[in-house]
Design a protein around this nucleic acid. Sequence first.
DNA 1: CGTGAGTTTGAAGGGAATCAAGACTAGTGG
DNA 2: CCACTAGTCTTGATTCCCTTCAAACTCACG
Lengths: 213, 213
Amino acid sequence: MLSPLKLQDAPSTTAPFGFTGPCLRHSRDEEIFGEGEAAEYVYQVISGAVRTSRILRDGRRQIDEFHFAGDYFGIEAGDLHRVTAEAMTDTSVRMVRRGTLSELAGQRGDVARAIFRLTVEGLQRSQDHVLMLGRKSACERVAGLLVDLAERTGASRELDVPMSRQDMADYLGLTIETVSRTLTQLQADGIIAIPTTRHIVLRDPAALRRLHG
Amino acid sequence: MLSPLKLQDAPSTTAPFGFTGPCLRHSRDEEIFGEGEAAEYVYQVISGAVRTSRILRDGRRQIDEFHFAGDYFGIEAGDLHRVTAEAMTDTSVRMVRRGTLSELAGQRGDVARAIFRLTVEGLQRSQDHVLMLGRKSACERVAGLLVDLAERTGASRELDVPMSRQDMADYLGLTIETVSRTLTQLQADGIIAIPTTRHIVLRDPAALRRLHG
DNA sequence: CGTGAGTTTGAAGGGAATCAAGACTAGTGG
DNA sequence: CCACTAGTCTTGATTCCCTTCAAACTCACG
């Protein structure tokens, strides 16, 4: 389900929201912005993958979203970032100054609508996440992530997994061991194959979707 | 943390978004709209309390948000509602036709900004919810709900709980038994008192906030 | 090849779920 | 007004899924 903005956006040449901003490269695990920092920019992933997360005082981490090419992140209601954003792979990210974006939205109705739509879609993704964390088993969660990854990265069966097992666990509200065991079990059931850690083949996507619920 | 819109909104006289729409009453447990129905309206709670939820095929339910006076709900990116909305108590709700609202937003920048802000705040609440469901213990979740309820309903210590234990459980991703046990434990610890089921006294809000993490 | 981070696998433990009564509470009607 | 009743809530006993703790393995990378 691509948004209008994504469609009109040829990643490396056209700017997000029809506006050209600087484009920064980040290497793997580099922080793009941190929780509590001033939210001066809004970001769009040009290539690569980004995670946004929050950490409790005792170190427990929850990833609230993965962001792929075309996705945007870093929008805040207040002045500060409430999450930390980090590159999961080598990543290219375009930055748009917040004030510039809201000005542009004020002038162009289509831009305002597009931004609003993306935000509502983000909200709905978050609600899906809530349903998963609140009411689904480990197996259903892992299956759901795989299906989601396939859809969002445009892969049909061959999945390039951009995140570590720890990232998966912190997104799914599980431990790394449970994620690993569940993947192994799915492989034993013939539903997926795991040729390498970062490469998963969906042998039976329909079964995965059924598990996903 | 009240939004600008809420502040300028004297619940029973002024309309949401500076616009007057019809105002409907719903009695307890009545459905306001259902998952899968056409999303023709956006709603604002005038008085009472509303829950929005989703149900899996096998009956598991997840409440994704409680809505109180001033809050709005029912915004969708697509044409259909993705959640079901029900009145938790006798409730008065104002309806604004979706097209009307987007027209108004197109004409008045302040309205567009206010709606956008409310949506981003909803997204942030959802992210808090994700963190809670993914990484917090039963005790931390219940404490968090109580603190949140107190803040949002403007109660300092005397909490009128508008929802059933089942609603609490389905919001917190727990079972009704665990919610009940946890509340009993908090009472035993002297942190809260439960004179009646729907009335909870926060005897040590600081301790609750500490548990909330 | 050696090294170490990341991952998988194994064994044991724990927190919340499930199953099952029992105690309230709020309506209802006599 | 008060017994009756259905629904809600609480409490108890047991189970189970996931976590925790621990160790072995794999595979990038120098």
